[in-house]
Nucleic acid binder design. Structure first.
Lengths: 198, 198
DNA sequence: AAGTGAAGCGGAGCGATGCTCCACTTAGTA
DNA sequence: TACTAAGTGGAGCATCGCTCCGCTTCACTT
């Protein structure tokens, strides 16, 4: 189960050449469509852009979450891998946490509708939610724990709650000058901060 | 425009008796359906429950936002009116703000899908978003300002940003024991807090 | 090069939903 | 009672998710 079938995985080499080609075509088309129409774009639209039938998309990516996951897989991986690096390079665990959250937020806000989809109670996106959690929750937990141990922030915050809260704050129409999730997230981090014990 | 037609308004008395009766029937049916199926429930379902045709619903409530607004109007009003009262009765402006936010959150989390709808970029809900803002933003602004003047919280936070952030934090599947928006909101308020000037 | 079987493909089609249109019904009045 | 306009209901159209199945094409064998 966990080893060979879920979500996007890299192109399985055991498939026929035309199938592999189509998979890439669909991925490219989906990426383009997601930019303009959001991750909720009609499958028909993606199929049309890719010049394939809808069934082809459903065959390669059984659920919408699988497609979205495959499109953004590289960026999610990059975010996950940045965690330990930041912890090593930043001035403090708290700074590492803050910078990592910056990365996460930057990713979310540039993908139209991604944050919405992540938290939507729509079953279509459940697998996407799970994938984010599988990949990023441990990273967040590690950063959080390091910051707690360093005495930078107060203990007791659950990584899941923090990540979901951040995700939630990123929801909504893009480019509204009156609302910048980063400001609220900065406030949240401020509230998390431990007054340094003397 | 602003004076007589938008959103739900109280039952216009100039209508025919059966029309007024139907309006109430629809409102009651919608309230029931919203509880079980969320504010996104199919119009057909509400119409069936009310025993009327779909057109009847659309005639009384041209957009979904109008229907939702009408259903929750009383509670929104109550929340708006509680603001000044809390400011008068609480120990400090900051406490008043906190208690008011508690009220707001309690309202949001008990209405399945309401918070989602509020922030959704779906045009169907734009009027609902506007109504919330029209009614509650001034109240929030007043509380915020009072807390700033009392030196309880740091200045510079925009009421719109705060309200939308709180709304966003309330989004998602209900009753997830791993996620309680109140905890994060408490953190947010903590971050807002001004270390009391000596 | 031709043959063959299975992997892969496309799009018609079904069900759900939002919303509209218009022939029919009914409340209120004369 | 008869009339008329306000009110009503649901058929109908469009969109979208997802499936099903007959046709096409690849890759391998001889």
């Amino acid at each position: 189960m966990t080893t060979d079938s879920p979500a996007g995985k890299s192109p399985p080499p055991g498939k026929r050449a035309d199938a592999r080609r189509n998979r890439e075509t669909v991925l490219a088309a989906a990426a383009e469509v997601f930019v303009t129409s959001g991750v909720d774009a009609p499958i028909r639209q993606i199929a049309a852009r890719a010049g394939v039938g809808m069934a082809t998309i459903y065959r390669h990516f059984p659920t919408r979450a699988d497609l979205v996951t495959a499109v953004y897989r590289h960026q999610i991986e990059a975010c996950a891998e940045a965690g330990p690096n930041l912890l090593a390079s930043a001035d403090s665990p708290f700074d590492a946490l803050r910078e990592w959250i910056d990365l996460f937020v930057a990713f979310l806000v540039t993908k139209h509708g991604l944050a919405d989809a992540l938290q939507s109670d729509n079953d279509r996106f459940a697998a996407l939610h799970d994938y984010f959690l599988d990949r990023l929750l441990p990273v967040c937990a590690e950063l959080l724990e390091a910051a707690v141990e360093a005495g930078d922030i107060r203990p007791g915050t659950q990584p899941y709650e923090l990540m979901r809260g951040i995700g939630n704050l990123c929801i909504g129409r893009d480019n509204d000058p009156r609302y910048d999730p980063r400001r609220l997230i900065a406030l949240l981090l401020q509230g998390l901060r431990q007054p340094h014990a003397s």
